[in-house]
Design a protein around this nucleic acid. Sequence first.
DNA 1: TTCCAGGAGCATC
DNA 2: GATGCTCATGGA
Length: 267
Amino acid sequence: MIIKDLDFESVHTFECGQCFRWNLSDRGYVGVAADKVCFAENNNIICNDEDADFWRDYFRGEVDYGDIKKMLVSSDKKLAPCIKYGGGIRILHQDLWEMIISFIISANNNIPRIKGIIEKLCESFGEPIEFQGERFYSFPTAERLSGLKQADLAHLKAGYRDRYILDAAQKVASGEVDLEALKNMPTVDAKKMLMRICGVGSKVADCILLFSLERYEVFPQDVWIKRILKDVYNVDEKDVAVFAADMYGEYAGIAQQYLYYYYRDNK
DNA sequence: TTCCAGGAGCATC
DNA sequence: GATGCTCATGGA
């Protein structure tokens, strides 16, 4: 079936750095989440009938970005060109475990390499999915990865992140890091819990909170954002968190995406 | 050759 | 709590 009523733009949503398993094909973007696949052309989602509810949740169809964008621009006029450029961004509701591993891999890395490593991880240890005559792979479970050794990951070329991936898998599979409990924890406590995993520092934890746990107030600070806030707003690195909270409040994370997407593409 | 990428761990103070 | 060094990999 085709879902037509979602308010987003594919290129903005899939190229803003929040997701790593959406790729441009000759039929628009194709994406994998859980054990499902769909195509996205502009803002039309082409999926199996029985998966419609899943994808509506994935795109968080009920969140009204019109109101959010108005609020953000009213508090920061400098966001206007960013929203004009990337106003079709939606923060996706992605799988918690997948975000933990994906953003561990993202550390000190670039997006094409991150995507390549994740794809190899899925092809190696995920389950095959057939969709419209093509084969895809699900994201491997923590249980599957927890049984591996570093040598099993060498072909991913993830470098020193191998042991972080295994540490995350072991802590999640054993229940030491409880994914279900994380979903209902206050943001501060959830962040502390996530940072018990090796390879999850402040920035990676913030990305997990924003892109899976829907804590829209968190403001991940990567090299780009620090640079933007210094150059455009003259805010020092140590003052970024306070600045973001004061300026953008409960939607700071969404503002962060507009800033990141605009200034990354416009030097 | 050196620098950089959606940083984090660790030692040291 | 802050600072500085190091950590694989590959493209520019």
